[in-house]
Computed example of a mutant assay.
Amino acid sequence: MKKNTPNLAASAALALMVALLLAGCASGPTVAELDALTDRIVKASFRTQGIANVERVTATDETNRACSEADASGQRLDEKKAKAIEEANFKSIQWPSDGKFVGDWRQGEAIAQNGRGLTWTDDAKMANGGNCYNCHQMDKKEISYGTIGPSLYNFGKLRGVTDVNSPEAKAMLEYTWGKVWNAKAYNACSNMPRAGHMGILTEEQVRHVVGLLLDPKSPVNQ
Rank of each mutant, 00 (worst) to 15 (best):
L16M: 12
L16V: 11
M17S: 10
V18S: 06
V18D: 05
V18T: 07
A19K: 15
L20I: 10
L21A: 11
L21D: 02
L21V: 02
L21E: 09
L22T: 08
G24W: 03
G24P: 02
G24H: 12
G24C: 15
G24L: 15
C25T: 03
C25A: 13
C25I: 12
C25F: 13
C25P: 02
A26I: 03
A26F: 05
A26S: 15
A26R: 10
S27Q: 14
G28T: 08
G28M: 01
G28W: 00
G28H: 00
T30F: 04
T30H: 13
T30V: 14
T30G: 13
V31H: 00
V31I: 11
V31L: 15
A32Q: 13
A32W: 08
A32R: 05
E33C: 09
E33L: 13
E33Y: 00
L34N: 02
L34H: 00
D35W: 03
A36R: 12
T38I: 07
D39H: 06
D39F: 15
I41H: 11
I41L: 04
I41C: 13
V42L: 15
V42G: 06
K43S: 14
K43Y: 06
K43G: 04
S45I: 06
F46H: 11
F46S: 08
R47M: 08
G50H: 01
G50F: 01
G50M: 03
G50Q: 08
G50P: 01
I51A: 04
N53Y: 03
N53C: 03
N53H: 13
